[in-house]
Design a protein around this nucleic acid. Sequence first.
DNA 1: ACCGTGACTGGCA
DNA 2: ATGCCAGCCACGG
Length: 112
Amino acid sequence: MKDTTQRKDWFETVYEIVRQIPKGKVTTYGRIAELIGTRGSARMVGWAMNKAHNQLPKVPAHRVVNRLGVLTGKHHFANPMAMQKALEKEGIKIVKDQIVNFEKHLWQPSEK
DNA sequence: ACCGTGACTGGCA
DNA sequence: ATGCCAGCCACGG
């Protein structure tokens, strides 16, 4: 079924997952990619985030980091510090663009 | 229609 | 231990 109605399914799936991230939690691109079923295409997830900038409702891309817990995409935000600041506002501490206790804040979609 | 790029990841040298 | 390369899928020019 590849009707036009399902065209945006892939991107929308990414957004949907990212929106499911609870406040004060973070996840990785690879993790999301794996949830989608396209494990290995973590790049696409990040790219989807780039496009998510125009998506509604807004996607908490600031809660998505690479597997090292580093804010790799901070430079893609309107303001690079906006990402770090947003995370700190959620209770996440960041040092040198890296999340402290990354695994502790890592969102685990075990419940979904 | 083809090539290059991209907010990643994992493996090999 | 550190660095480089290849794989992955989708979109833009």
